[in-house]
Design a protein around this nucleic acid. Structure first.
Lengths: 189, 189
DNA sequence: AAATGACCGAATGGACATATCGGTCATACA
DNA sequence: TGTATGACCGATATGTCCATTCGGTCATTT
């Protein structure tokens, strides 16, 4: 397999297992079976490597969402299906939320930038989809950025934050049905 | 004025100005014009003092909300009015979010407990109001806890988190109208 | 009975030495 | 000639003192 892929896999494994700070470039190199210097042939630095992994995860998630969206299906059905698909990866999302949170506490501008990029990537993807259905005339005219932002915050809230103050998680169905019943519903014409 | 009130005022001022850690009990005592020991006649420890301040702020907010709610008015109007009233205090809310966030980074169970209490107090207040309108038959039957939780997360999201990735804040009207247009709207029969 | 500040032990922060890590680059290698 | 590599370097983190500060107590005062 090509070295870049190996490095990404190794880094992903190490970040997931030990978090950002506790992962060293040497460790990644060892797992990937490459020299430390090789990593720097592909990635500018540790921060960028991490960013690349996160951004690739988002791309994967976009693809997963697109795979369950049926062009001719009504908005509600597609929204529900896409959300259920995302929820299949909720543990992964929680894990990355935790790692990014660990990074956040440390307040460098680079971290803020990563968070901004992640948020922007997700919000603009959701925003585009919302917009498509607005144009189709299937849902009301709304500020798609605000709706997308709300959806993201709600998702993180129920998948991640909820467990901080509640003993048991909400099930995928509870979450998806609730979204269906509130936010998605409010968009209907 | 009674000493407990003086202490609360002094502590509030100091926490707001310097944050939790940088505020010392001696400092509070000095501002309040009392001996340090006196504080401990009213509050078990620093953590509890802070908690008391936050919980009192929530009580104030509840009162402010109740003051603008008109018993006979429709749900949408009251929800909008209450939200607009809360938004008058958004800077204060942001400030306390920051202080609590500062505390959070430090991960003691006591902090988690405070956060839990704050969340629970807010969610159960909103939940009760939601429930009232459900019983009146003005809004759909929904899981009031989930709706309240969503409203809280959305509020914090737009008032607090939004500014982390955007240069300019949303106006009170933008936020309130958006809520009206999405979450509140979805509750209508 | 309530208020207080001297007092205590624990926690914090500063200073300094050491270790570790991110990142570079001269060399090896293909 | 271009890619891979690990020894090397400077910066940052970690560990270790010790002095100071702070949260919390309590004997004394009011």
């Amino acid at each position: 397999m090509d070295r870049k892929q190996e490095i990404l896999l190794a880094a992903n494994k190490s970040f997931s297992l030990f978090g950002y700070k506790a992962t060293t470039m040497e460790q990644i190199a060892k797992i990937a079976n490459v020299g430390k210097g090789t990593i720097y042939n592909f990635f500018e630095n540790k921060e960028v490597l991490f960013q690349e992994i996160v951004l690739r995860m988002i791309e994967e998630m976009k693809q997963e969402a697109l795979n369950v969206i049926i062009e001719e299906a009504p908005f509600q059905q597609n929204a529900h299906a896409a959300l259920m698909k995302m929820l299949e990866f909720r543990e992964t999302h929680q894990l990355y939320a935790k790692i990014i949170d660990e990074e956040t506490q440390w307040k460098t501008p680079a971290v803020k930038q990563v968070i901004g990029q992640v948020e922007q990537a997700i919000v603009s993807f959701i925003g585009e989809k919302i917009n498509k259905y607005v144009q189709k005339g299937e849902i009301r005219q709304v500020n798609e950025e605000l709706v997308a932002y709300l959806l993201l915050k709600a998702y993180v809230g129920f998948v991640n934050d909820w467990n901080l103050t509640h003993d048991d998680s909400l099930t995928e169905e509870e979450i998806a049905n609730f979204f269906q019943d509130t936010i998605f519903r409010s968009l209907a014409i």
